[in-house]
């Protein structure tokens, strides 16, 4: 993939929180390019500004100052409704705490973005939602409620929801933060497959082994980017899972 195809450009992005007299510089002058088809892992200590950065990229939050271009278009000058449309059909979000609606079946949770998308007809909704659930391996759990699903399964519902409108970018903030390592690898397997299909992925994580599944790693410290390197020995989630399966099988026999 040629790195000529630029997707996201941010320049001198700052975010300052003011609580009383105290100012917190969550982001100070962050400049970054993300190309189409990238899989970026954003790393750094807690409080270093990773989430703040990701929320601004995803148009969930607005910066104090700076520039943000997506496919050459100025994002920050757009009104709230335009941003909502952008979130609806260009971005898919995945959160550490899943953020799926309680007491709502997997199917209905995944249908939700479609209900806010005028281009999707009513009769297409069910099928699209089902296909998204199938692609994350939940074809048999479409009618399950969140409380009947494991953490990994709930995160997959969230991924299906993020995929259902065919997004260009997936933004994931600590998607594996609440999951055990095997389940985390399963989520990474899904991510790598999506990335192979051309979807750009921006993922926040503080776990170095999870970051190894990405193509490049960015490190934040005190609201600044201190490193931006390609991953040297990129791991393949499918193979890692096979290793784990082999290990557990070995343990079971001994």
């Amino acid at each position: 993939m040629a790195d000529s195809e630029n997707l996201i450009t941010v320049k001198d992005l700052t975010k300052t929180y003011r609580t009383g007299d105290i100012e917190v510089h969550a982001l100070s002058a962050v400049t970054l390019n993300i190309n189409k088809g990238e899989f970026v892992a954003i790393m750094g200590a807690s409080g270093s500004g990773k989430s703040t950065f990701m929320n601004i990229l995803g148009c969930l939050d607005s910066p104090t100052s700076g520039e943000y271009l997506m496919e050459g278009m100025d994002i920050l000058s757009r009104d709230k409704n335009k941003l909502a449309e952008l979130r609806n059909n260009k971005f898919g979000f995945i959160f550490q705490s899943f953020n799926i609606l309680p007491r709502t079946s997997a199917q209905e949770n995944v249908e939700l973005p479609l209900l806010y998308n005028n281009k999707v007809k009513a009769n297409e909704r069910k099928e699209k939602a089902f296909n998204a659930l199938k692609s994350v391996g939940l074809a048999d759990r479409v009618n399950s409620m969140p409380n009947q699903l494991s953490g990994g399964q709930q995160q997959r519902v969230a991924i299906a929801r993020a995929l259902v409108n065919d997004p260009m970018v997936i933004m994931a903030d600590e998607p594996t933060g609440n999951l055990d390592s095997r389940t985390s690898y399963e989520i990474m397997e899904i991510f790598q497959k999506l990335n192979d299909k051309g979807i750009t992925i921006v993922m926040v994580t503080h776990e170095p082994d999870i970051a190894q599944f990405a193509k490049s790693n960015i490190v934040f410290k005190d609201g600044k980017i201190i490193a931006n390197n390609p991953v040297k020995e990129r791991k393949n989630a499918t193979e890692e899972l096979k290793k784990i399966a082999a290990l557990t099988a070995e343990k079971a026999t001994t």
Binding site: G58, L60, K80, N81, A84, E85, R87, N88, N89, F93, N99, I100, L101, L112, P113, Y116, N117, R161, N165
Partner: peptide
């Protein structure tokens, strides 16, 4: 409010 946050994150406008 959380529910509204979720809805807005996936594309609901204030009006919706």
């Amino acid at each position: 409010t959380r529910e509204i946050g979720i809805r807005m994150a996936i594309g609901a406008k204030g009006r919706d």
